[in-house]
C-alpha cells in the first residue's frame, strides 16, 4: 500500500475535498461577479460620501437662527454671500491657498534631490539611511510632531536656549505663518519623496551618461533630460502635497496657535464652536470646489502624471 500512498498522498486528497467544497459554495460561473464583489466596499464608501455631500449641500443652503439654534426651513444663499463677502473668510482662503502653493513648491524642490540621491546612490548603506530618515517621522503622527516643534521652537525651546547662550534675546519663532508653512513642508516631505522615487527610478541612468557624451554638462542634462522625464512624478507628488496641505488642520492649529487658521480650521470653528452647520457646510463645499478646480487645472496643464496610472503615453 506504500506505493499507492505516495502516488496519491493524503494532503492531495484533503486539497481535493477542499476544492470540491469550494466549488459547491462558489461555482465557477459566479466568477464573473468577483471583480464587482471586490469593488463593492469602495463603491459603498464612495456612495456614502456622495450621500454625505448631498446632506452638506442641503445644510449649506440653510441659515442658523441664533435665537433658537435651529436651521432655517427655507433655502437661501445667505451662507454663500457671507463666505464670499466677509473679509475673515477671504483672508483664511487666501492664506490657505497661497500657503499650500508655497509649501508645494518648497517641498518639491527639497524632495527632488533627496529622492534623486536615494535612487541613484551606489551605496546601499546611504540608501537605507535615507529611507529610514524618511520613514521615521511617518511613524510619529502629525499632532505629536507638531508638538515636538513647539518644544524645539518655543520661547523656552531648544533653539532659543541655544541663542541665549550666545547672548541673543529670545525670538518668537512660533504662532506665525512661516511656522505653519515650515511644519507643513516638514510633514509633506516624505510624501513627496515617496511619490518621486519611482518616477526617478524609471529614468535609465544610461540616458544621463548619453547626455554627457553628447555634450551636456550636469545642469543641462538635468534640465533637458532628467526634469522632463521626471514630470509625471513631479505632477503626482505636487498634487498630493497641494491637496494635503490645502486641507490641513493640525499644523495651522498647533503651530499657528489660532492666529493662522486655514480653511479646515474655519470649518471646524463653524461646526464645533459656533455650531453653525450651514456656514460650515458652505465653507466645506467651497474647499472641495477649490481643491477640485486646482487639481483639474494641474491635470489640464501638465497631465495626470503618475496618478494617471495605466499606460501613459510617453
Amino acid at each position: 500500500m506504500r506505493a499507492a500512498k505516495s502516488a496519491y498522498p493524503l494532503t492531495w486528497r484533503i486539497m481535493d475535498a477542499l476544492e470540491a467544497f469550494a466549488a459547491f459554495v462558489w461555482p465557477a460561473r459566479f466568477g464573473r461577479a468577483i471583480p464587482w464583489l471586490m469593488l463593492a466596499p469602495a463603491l459603498l464608501l464612495v456612495g456614502l460620501l456622495v450621500l454625505g455631500l448631498w446632506q452638506i449641500g442641503d445644510a449649506s443652503l440653510r441659515t442658523l437662527d441664533t435665537s433658537t439654534f435651529l436651521m432655517s426651513e427655507t433655502y437661501t444663499l445667505a451662507n454663500y454671500r457671507r463666505a464670499f463677502t466677509e473679509s475673515l473668510f477671504a483672508v483664511v482662503a487666501w492664506r490657505s491657498l497661497a500657503g499650500s502653493l508655497m509649501v508645494t513648491a518648497v517641498t518639491l524642490i527639497l524632495a527632488f534631490p533627496y529622492a534623486y540621491v536615494m535612487v541613484r546612490t551606489s551605496s546601499p548603506v546611504i540608501r537605507k539611511l535615507l529611507l529610514i530618515a524618511l520613514f521615521l517621522p511617518f511613524f510619529i503622527g502629525q499632532v505629536v510632531r507638531a508638538y515636538g516643534w513647539l518644544i524645539i521652537l518655543g520661547n523656552q525651546g531648544m533653539v532659543n536656549e541655544a541663542l541665549s547662550l550666545v547672548g541673543i534675546a529670545p525670538i518668537r519663532l512660533l504662532y506665525n505663518y512661516w511656522a505653519v508653512l515650515f511644519g507643513l513642508v516638514q510633514y509633506m516631505l516624505p510624501f513627496a519623496v515617496l511619490m518621486l522615487a519611482p518616477a526617478l527610478t524609471a529614468i535609465p541612468e544610461e540616458l544621463e551618461a548619453a547626455a554627457g557624451s553628447l555634450g551636456a554638462d550636469w545642469v543641462r542634462t538635468f534640465r533637458h533630460v532628467v526634469l522632463p522625464l521626471a514630470r509625471p512624478g513631479l505632477v503626482g507628488a505636487g498634487l498630493v502635497v497641494l491637496t494635503l496641505s490645502l486641507t490641513d488642520f493640525a499644523m495651522p492649529a498647533i503651530l499657528g496657535g489660532g492666529s493662522q487658521d486655514f480653511i479646515a480650521n474655519a470649518i471646524y470653528d463653524q461646526f464645533f464652536r459656533t455650531s453653525d452647520q450651514g456656514l460650515g457646510s458652505t465653507l466645506a463645499l467651497l474647499l472641495v470646489a477649490t481643491g477640485s478646480l486646482l487639481v483639474g487645472l494641474v491635470f489640464t496643464l501638465f497631465g495626470a502624471g503618475t496618478l494617471a496610472m495605466g499606460r501613459a503615453r510617453q
Binding site: E206, L214, D217, P228
Partner: peptide, 20 residues
C-alpha cells in the same frame, strides 16, 4: 576631461535614446 568636453560620439548598449 569630463565626457561632455570630449569630442566622442557613443552608441550605447540600450541605445539610450531620449524617450520624450
Amino acid at each position: 576631461v569630463p565626457p561632455h568636453r570630449r569630442s566622442i560620439g557613443m552608441v550605447f548598449q540600450k541605445l539610450a535614446l531620449f524617450p520624450h
